[in-house]
Nucleic acid binder design. Sequence first.
RNA 1: GCGAGAGUGGCGGAAUUGGCAGACGCGCCAGACUUAGGAUCUGGUGGGCAACCGUGGGGGUUCAACUCCCCCCUCUCGCACCA
Length: 863
Amino acid sequence: MAEKTEKYDHKSIESRWQAEWETGGAFRTTEGHGDKYYVLEMFPYPSGKIHMGHVRNYSIGDVLARFLMMKGKNVLHPMGWDSFGLPAENAAIQHGIPPAKWTHENIANMRTQLKRMGLSYDWSREVATCTPEYYKWNQWLFLRLFEKGLAYKKRSSVNWCPECATVLANEQVEDGECWRCGSVVEMKELDQWFFKITAYADELLEHTNKLPGWPERVLTMQRNWIGKSVGAEVDFKLEGSDEAIKIFTTRPDTIFGVTFMSLAPSHPFVEKITTPERKKEVAEFAAKVKAEAKASRPGADEAEKEGVFTGAYCLNPLTGERVPVYAANFVLMEYGTGAVMAVPAHDQRDFEFAKKYGLPIKVVINPAGVELDPLKMEAAFVDSGVMVNSGKFDGLPSDGAKDAIIDSLEEQGKGKRSITYRLRDWGISRQRYWGCPIPVIYCDKCGTVPVPDANLPVILPENVNLTGKGLSPLAGADDFVNTVCPRCGNKARRETDTMDTFVDSSWYFLRYTSPRNETLPFGKDEAGYWMPVDQYIGGIEHAVMHLLYARFFTKALRDLGLHEIDEPFRNLLTQGMVCKEITKCPEHGYLYPEEAAGGKCSICSKPVSVGPVEKMSKSKKNVIDPDRIIKEYGADTTRLFSLFAAPPEKDLDWNEEGVEGSYRFLGRVWRLVVENLDLISGAKAWQGGSLEGSSRELHGATHRTIKKVTQDIEERQHFNTAISSIMELVNASYQFMPTLNGKGAGSVEARVFKEAAEAVVLLIAPFAPHISEELWSRLGSNVPVYKMKWPEWIEDALKLDEIEIPVQVNGKVRGRVRVAPGASEAAVKEVVLSDAKVKEFVEGKEIKKFVYVTDKIVNMVVA
RNA sequence: GCGAGAGUGGCGGAAUUGGCAGACGCGCCAGACUUAGGAUCUGGUGGGCAACCGUGGGGGUUCAACUCCCCCCUCUCGCACCA
């Protein structure tokens, strides 16, 4: 140990092993045999550079993939690029770089970055959604959905940004404004393609109960999004007309309490039924509500309920009572039928509305044993209770009366059972260039004609003038637009909208199972073998959109006979955000960490304030570039820290001291092995047998660590505690080192030490694979670590001769005794009562109770 | 408002089934080795002089509560006129 130990040089180690993996095709998946496991991380949009969120996401996935490989699973662990999208178009508009060039350069750069992280991907399966090889199948799937009636076109109202001259997805509208330019978003009527996701609403909802491997909150969000309501549709006949207003209600039990009717101001009946003398007022009101809706709806309950009387009346189908019809601002045209029966006594909104406009309140449900007085009510009574003022239904419990009332309505032909969803069909048309062309041709004679399969892919042309103005960029590409009708051969025009990029990502996990298939989007056999994804990992921001769309596609493709599974992702892990404290200069605002070295602003030298921890974002400048960290500390340290600092599903607080700590730990592992290399590689593996003293302890610690690390990864995915237990084993090994002095490689001590050191090297492999490979090869192995079998613990080694039992007196620890494992209560009691320390607290008092939890604790109650 | 999650040392976090609160790491303190150390190794580190007190606050169950029950406070996220 006298000579200087070789330093831990992460740079040369990491580049050597990355080259080794690359040339050796290390993580190429062997097809279709054995116990499979599909690990998938959400593929990135190729923005140009990876960020810490990616680092965390892929580190988590890589731990699982490498661990399971060592566990003997046939692991599929692919990577690709969600590479269509608006940023590429913006780059073209702002910097004149063609979107394809920009995207492919970004992919090349990010691929290099990912390879520098040492991730165990099967790169031979890489896909990019912007390539014709991929989007051909997007188009093919579109056509299959079209044939089944699951893709259709209709005119509908969409979010429109007048400045960018394009449609925006709902998620791209922030508080009623365009996320890019901040213009107020308008509603515009356009012809749009839709996918009929609502056809699967019930199954999507039902199957949320069959996903025990998903976080509850994601399931809850999806259930809310789908928003199923069970109730009835009821016709309220208009007075003096044959027509009826159709309403949807979940509370048919309150129908006898209807005192007015509320229509959405944009409901088609509003114009039709309003009496001439009220026309002006109603029209003004409708215009006002429309204007407010444009500037984003003011949130919920505190918004004032407003409305106007249309002058018309309708008739309660069960009582025949005359009911005035109002237009009201809180009724949404998009939900249900756009018309609501108003029951002020039992609905809070209707109650407020009735109070404001002096409309009658009629109680039809009383809480058990209470009689409500409409004049004294301060809020609606919305719970269930006992029916009153409801004719033959009086006295029934209101819950049960729902069915009876619907039955009665159905008998009279005035209503029927009905289910309503909040979920809308998925509008997939985008007036954008950088996306998958929708494979449809419009012919004056034949109408809407799908592009025949033989003509796929419809290639996205490259010579397109992008200005960011006007309609779809493709509409100006004459070579693209002008074509002939596949049916009649006459001149025809192509669809110029492209698909929402969420379409691309709704089935990429299936493509990975046979990424080079040239006859189908994916092979049925391969999908049958690999699907479902066993572990999917990604950010919570995709809780609804992507994950719901992917579930829908999986079901729709199943019904097309392309595969046989119901749900794409068996287990879902939603990682937390990567955060860092913000740094501010009183003069120059937010500063990048590099601009605040030594606590002073690099521009003006004023002291900076270090603020609260927030999600890393460019706008707040609290970002850390993974490239810099990897260069400075290495990929192993970067990965290790991102896994050690917090459990995966929690937010991670990035701090550089912590990174240094992880680097120090790897240095410690390095020295543990390298300083004792001759001894370890010279010693024979410990084969078992009886051990004493510190050797026995180290042996036990080794196996306890193996057990803990294995279970933490496998059962809990708590990598932070797995890593901390490896640290403990390393610490224990250092403590053991002095006993090695003067002992040869043949000694028991050397052999037990070898066991511990080798366990450390194998156990850190999923977290820090490069250093693990390097040390493992130095220890003399010809087999790389990733092909090694994951170590197994020996139960016998975990057994202890004696266990230290804390002894509590009246709940406070007053002493400790050592007993044999499994000792009887009587035996333990004897030892405890003869213990000097314990005696001090017990002497002269009566022991009222003696509790012994085997091998855990003693507690005595004395008085 | 509704739904979900969280609140533990100076900091990140641990305690998996009700059984020694604070593992592991950061930071800090001390010592060793060194020409030197911001390297490395070793030890210490919740508060309090102590009895004791300590897991957001208050109550309860229990021999025993971070953990279970009731009430309250704070924060984060999601949904938010859904009829």
